[in-house]
Write a protein that binds this DNA or RNA. Structure first.
Lengths: 203, 203
DNA sequence: TAACTTTTTGACCAATTGGTAAAGCTACGA
DNA sequence: TCGTAGCTTTACCAATTGGTCAAAAAGTTA
């Protein structure tokens, strides 16, 4: 077969691949890579194990596929942060976008957390090649804003870390949050985080 | 054997039990409960698998023992927060104690994170019975401080969440932090977090 | 409908898993 | 020195694991 001529996937292929990936996300995000079995994925997807292996060459390929997909989604809000916008507005909008993601994509957040906790064995290259340059670029933007006197002086790197950690906390530690708060923390969390970062960053 | 007469553990028992628990902490904190095997623990501890099972009745008992030990260590800094001290000082001291724990006990932090991410299947009772009352008590203290005008008005619950998340981030996401920062983040993180919470809480 | 391709399945496999049983070893007091 | 309680190991098991394979079934197309 000539290069670049992979025929487009059939309807069945599309459906089953996404069925599998969705099921795998459920399981991997809770039990991690080693703790997840193909049988669990198969049952969650409503397919037989050999059928799973018809679409993916193995457990690892499923995991890697999820991680690759995740990377884009994950970086997107940071990409959107506009160097030409109003600094405080841009950062607060970023905080809120990340908080929305914690609410809307908790499985993805946990999958990512699990992978990093493990030492990112399958994601280190992505972090180096994908995240690092973007992180440096955006930190430089924030530093510029600070130098221009538009933000209070803070370490941009730790600022970004604290935005990540405070927002993702509501996805990754959802169980704990629910035990301690009850009800939906989202609205009160948004209000609190806006307050937190406004106070920090207002010059 | 009469009740309450368990004879005190021998020197060998002490040594091997703690050898096992230390090894298990290494493995569980990275791979989670399901992802960890007794063989991994045995090898890390330098003991044979049946020997492990001479000291613990099974994988689950090792995990539960670690979780129980952890609970005390984990709550300790919060317990120490003194309702009669200076509000801002107390809270900033708490932040720094938590940050020190993230540096000194990263395995414990990851073990806890993994358990919560999984939905706390073996810790829910502990959260309800141990953490919740303490959390409520300390939130009430913070609220009192706010009512007395000694702190800026914030939601105490989210304040505590943000202290937990920002500090534990440096343990749980250590791999990511190292990729993005290089070097030891501890000192600059301390400086940043003190700034963050000072700004938020100063009336 | 016949010929073909894609999808699905049941049977199977070697390796790994948590765990057991019993024999053997070791430290130590009498 | 011997006995014995405590510790360790060897050999083993049944269940589960990730994965294979050939054949059956289900679509597709001529």
């Amino acid at each position: 077969m000539p290069e670049g001529t992979e025929k487009k996937p059939s309807r069945i292929q599309m459906r089953n691949r996404s069925l599998i990936l969705d099921a795998a996300l459920d399981v991997f995000s809770v039990h991690g890579f080693r703790g997840t079995t193909l049988d669990q994925i198969a049952e969650a997807a409503g397919l037989s194990k050999p059928n799973i292996l018809y679409y993916f060459s193995g457990k690892e390929e499923i995991h890697v596929t999820l991680l690759n997909q995740l990377m884009e989604t994950w970086l997107d809000p940071l990409v959107e942060m506009d160097a030409d916008g109003d600094p405080l507005e841009e950062l607060l909008a970023y905080v809120q976008r990340k908080l929305d993601m914690a609410r809307d994509l908790p499985r993805e957040s946990r999958l990512f957390a699990g992978e990093i906790i493990q030492g990112a064995p399958r994601m280190l290259p992505h972090l180096e090649a994908g995240l690092k340059p973007l992180f440096d670029e955006k930190c430089a933007v924030i530093q510029r804003w600070i130098n221009e006197g538009k933000l209070a002086p803070v370490d941009p790197r730790h600022l970004v870390f604290s935005i990540w950690s405070t927002t993702q906390h509501y996805a990754d530690f959802d169980t704990q949050v629910r035990v301690l708060m009850g009800g939906d923390p989202h609205d009160s969390a948004r209000q609190y985080l806006v307050q937190l970062f406004s106070r920090l960053l207002t010059p």
